[in-house]
Computed example of a mutant assay.
Amino acid sequence: MKFIAFAFSCFLIFSIPANAGDADTFNGMVALANKGHAEAQYHVGMMHNNGIGTRQDPRQAFEWFQKAAASNDPLGAYKLGCYYDGQGAGIVTADPNEALRYKLVAAKAGYSLAQHDVANLYDRQGNSQEALKWWKMAGDQGYPRALYSLSMAYSAGKGTPRDLSLSYAYFKLSTLAPRKNVNEMASMLSKPELEKAEKLVSAWSAQPTALTLKAKSGVSAAEELLKTARK
């Protein structure tokens, strides 16, 4: 049984009993991580984080994310940022500055979820222009919540001149709103505005980075890493 992509969210999920294959992957990954392999350190952290191949242990996960981040693994840095962003209650004190520092590493490396989170952190600081920049990067990769945030920003003229065509286009692309709401927004646009928006929608396609795809592949990425290391 395969598990969901374990880098997809900052939030912990319930532990799932490990099967033999996951336990083998975990043991192999620990051996590789102990040799200083940065990506392996991240995977060990995620397996502790989610209880895959081992018992769920957030404290152990945090320690491995620290090692991965120190070894310059961007996904390890992202998860370390998640712990500073509130996931690490009882393990580390929440610190928005540290959360931003570590998540920026993964955002700059191209991870869409990190880019979205960085945008939100800048938005909380009142830095609308910087937030818009990172929402755009995540949105270009097809991250729905970033597309929705872009729609709201262009609708309100937040960090950018107000543009209802772009607002509608991003709203439609986000797929988060019911069709009824999309139609209601369309009715608010002039014919030229609507034509511009529909042209943008039809020409758009998500462009996820290699790092985003790796993060979404979850434990499969760990298995592939082991196969490569054993060749």
Rank of each mutant, 00 (worst) to 15 (best):
residue 73 D to I: 13
residue 111 Y to V: 03
residue 42 Y to N: 12
residue 139 G to A: 15
residue 98 E to H: 10
residue 79 K to P: 00
residue 44 V to G: 00
residue 88 G to E: 09
residue 93 T to I: 06
residue 138 A to D: 01
residue 46 M to L: 14
residue 45 G to D: 03
residue 139 G to C: 05
residue 67 K to C: 04
residue 46 M to T: 05
residue 102 Y to I: 06
residue 103 K to R: 15
residue 88 G to Q: 09
residue 43 H to F: 15
residue 66 Q to W: 07
residue 127 N to V: 04
residue 90 G to L: 12
residue 65 F to Q: 05
residue 145 R to T: 10
residue 71 S to A: 15
residue 41 Q to V: 12
residue 147 L to G: 01
residue 147 L to K: 03
residue 123 D to N: 11
residue 61 A to R: 04
residue 123 D to G: 11
residue 122 Y to E: 01
residue 66 Q to L: 14
residue 79 K to Q: 14
residue 99 A to W: 03
residue 48 H to M: 09
residue 114 A to P: 00
residue 67 K to D: 07
residue 88 G to M: 09
residue 50 N to C: 11
residue 62 F to K: 06
residue 139 G to Y: 06
residue 58 P to M: 12
residue 63 E to K: 10
residue 137 M to G: 00
residue 91 I to W: 02
residue 109 A to D: 04
residue 86 G to I: 07
residue 112 S to M: 10
residue 68 A to I: 10
residue 50 N to P: 00
residue 129 Q to V: 14
residue 107 A to F: 01
residue 124 R to N: 12
residue 128 S to G: 00
residue 124 R to M: 13
residue 76 G to L: 09
residue 103 K to P: 01
residue 129 Q to F: 13
residue 117 D to M: 08
residue 47 M to A: 05
residue 70 A to E: 12
residue 83 Y to Q: 08
residue 137 M to D: 07
residue 91 I to Q: 04
residue 57 D to Q: 07
residue 103 K to N: 14
residue 40 A to P: 02
